[in-house]
Design a protein around this nucleic acid. Sequence first.
DNA 1: CCTCGGTATGTAACCGGTTACAATTTGGTA
DNA 2: TACCAAATTGTAACCGGTTACATACCGAGG
Lengths: 344, 344
Amino acid sequence: MVSNSARPKRATLRDVARHAKVSVATVSRVLNGAASVSADTRMHVTSAIEALGFVPSAAARTLNSGRSKSIGALVPTLDHSIFARDLDALENRLSQQGYALVVAVTGGAPEVEERKAMGLLDMGVDGLIVSGRTHSAGFDGLVDRFQVPTLITSYYDPAARYPTIGYDNASIAVKALNFLRSLGHASIAVIHGPTEVNDRIEARIGAIDAASAGQSVQFQRVSMDVAGGADAVRRIASDRTRPTALLCLSDVQALGALFELQRHGISVPEQISLMGFDDLEWSAVSMPGITSIKLPAARMGEAAADALVAWLNAERPPKSAALAAEIVVRGSTRRLDPPEGGSA
Amino acid sequence: MVSNSARPKRATLRDVARHAKVSVATVSRVLNGAASVSADTRMHVTSAIEALGFVPSAAARTLNSGRSKSIGALVPTLDHSIFARDLDALENRLSQQGYALVVAVTGGAPEVEERKAMGLLDMGVDGLIVSGRTHSAGFDGLVDRFQVPTLITSYYDPAARYPTIGYDNASIAVKALNFLRSLGHASIAVIHGPTEVNDRIEARIGAIDAASAGQSVQFQRVSMDVAGGADAVRRIASDRTRPTALLCLSDVQALGALFELQRHGISVPEQISLMGFDDLEWSAVSMPGITSIKLPAARMGEAAADALVAWLNAERPPKSAALAAEIVVRGSTRRLDPPEGGSA
DNA sequence: CCTCGGTATGTAACCGGTTACAATTTGGTA
DNA sequence: TACCAAATTGTAACCGGTTACATACCGAGG
C-alpha cells in the first residue's frame, strides 16, 4: 500500500536550482541536454535532481511549447477486433514518436462523438483521429474552432473534409461480391450491421447494391455481433429458395452465421458458401476456415499515426491514402456446380 | 479539407479581456460561472469570447490546479475482448466524471510496461490503472517518484502493493475445476496461455494444481489465442487416454478448441466436455454453447474508475474489492456417465 | 454628511517550466 | 598588458490561465 496522506508536493525546477546553487536556466539546460554546460555543474545539477526526486511538470512544458504531445482517437467501440488491432498499432507507433494516445469511445452515436471530441480537445490533444467519413456539424465546428489536425481512418475518400487513411470500402465490397459470382453464385445474401452509425458498412452496401443490378442479392440487416450473424441465418434458413452464398460484412457475423448453419444442419460449403470481412483470427482456425477479406488494420493504424505526426511537424495536411485489401480464400466457399442438364 | 498553413494562434484570455474592455479576472469569473459579475458585463464578455472563438488552454488550467484530469491505463493488449470490455466501461465512467483515458499497450512485457508507464507519468496523468499484481521494480520506483495513485485490476489481492479491484483468480479457477468434477470428470486437461507475462493465469493454474492433488489434471500451455486452443486439442487428440474434459482458461482458446475438436470428429459434449473462461460473446452462440465463467469485466472497469476518482478526491486510497464471477452452464459440458459395470 | 457592508471589478502575483538577452569568466592574441 | 571572441551562467520576461487582495461604487443607517 502506497503512502498517501498529505502527499508531499513535488520539487520544482527552482528547488533544484537552489539546491544545486545554480540558476533555473542552467537546470533547464541540463534537463534538455542543451549545449554549453560545464561537466562540473552538470554533475551538480544532476545529483540535485536525483536528491530531490525532481520530475518536470508536463503542464508547464505544454504551456510553453503549445504542444501536449498527445493525440485523441474517437472510435465506435473497443470491443471489436478490427478497431483493437487498429488502435493497438496506432498506440505503438505514436508512443514511438513520443505521443500519448487518448481514447474515447462513442458507441457510434453522433452526439456522444461530439461530446467526447469536446472532451479531447478540451484536454488539449494536438491531433484527432476518427473512424469514418461522416460526422455531425457540431463535430466539424469543434475541429474548426480548435484548429486541430484531424484525420479519418477506416475510410478512403480523397474528397472528404479531412484527410483519410483507410480502405476503399465500396470497391472492396464489390471485389467480394465478384469473387462469389466468379464461383458461380447468383443468389447471394449480404449480412450486415446497422448503417446509420457506420458509414463504412453503408458504403459497402451501396456499392454492392449498385454492382448487383438485376441479380438476386438480398440484404439482411442484423446487429453487429456474433448473435447478429446467427439471427440472419435463422431468417434465411427457412426460406424456400435459399441463397447459395452468404456474404457477411464482418467476420464477427460470419462466425455467428457459421454456428447457426451448423445448428440447422446446413453444411458449409457444400450446401451454402460463407464469406466474411476483416479476416479476424478465428477465421483461419474455424471449421471450415472462413474465406474473408483481409483488412490491414494494423498497417492502417501505423499509417495514420505517421500521417498525423507528419502533419503536426510539417504544418500541412497529408494526402489521403488507400490501403489494399485482399481476399483470403479458405474452405467456407466453393464453386457452385453448373446446373447439370436441368431438372427444370 | 481544413485550412492549414500559418495556423492562426488561438485567442487568449487577455485578448478577450481587451476586446470586452474588462480585466482578465472578470473574464475568468465569467468562464467559471463564479459569483458577482453583473449581467451586463457577463454579456459583453460572453460575446467577446464568441467573437474571438476563444478556447481556454488546458495546459494553463492544469498548471494552476495541479490536476490534468486524465488517467492512464496500462493493458497487455487491446485485442482481447476481456480487456476491451473493461476499458470500454472504464472510459465511459471516467469521461462521465470529467476524466480522459490515456491508453498504453504493453504486450505484457515488463520493460515495455515500465517505458510506457514513464510516458504516461511524464505526460502528467493524475492516476494509473494497471492489469495484474506483478510489476517490475522499475515500475514501482516510478510510482513512488511520481506519487501517483495507482490501482490494480483483473486481480483481487488485498495484500498487494496497490489497491486491487478485480477477481479472485485462484478461487474462481477452483470453482471451475470443481464444477467439472461435480459432473464426474476425473481426467481434465487445463489449457492456458503463457504465465510469465500474465499473473492472472498463473494464479489460476497454481490454484488448480493445488486443488487437484492426486487427481489426473494435465496442463497444456499454448498461445493465448484461437490458434492456441486448436494447438492444444491437436496434442491431446492423439493421446491414447484422452481427458474427459477440457478447461480453457480463456474463451478465445475454447473457441479454437471447439473447432479443432470438430475437425477431429470428436463431438462436444458427448465425447468430451469443454469449458471456458471469460464468457465472451460467441460462447452463447456457438454450437454447442460453451460453458464458461462469466467475468464482469464491464463492472470491473466501472468499479476501477469510481475507486480511482474517489481516491483522487479523497486523497486516501480505496479498499481492494473482489468482483463475483459465476458459472454459465451451456451445452458444451455434460455429466459423465458412471462407469457401467465395467469393461475393465 | 459620513461611515459601514456588500457588490462589482481591477491589479498583480503565481503555477513551473523555457528562452532571449545580459553578464561574467576564460583563453588566446596583438 | 590590453582586447576580443567563445564558453558559461544568471536574470527576467513569458506561456495562459487562477485567485488573493485592493479598490471603487452603491444604498442604508446614524
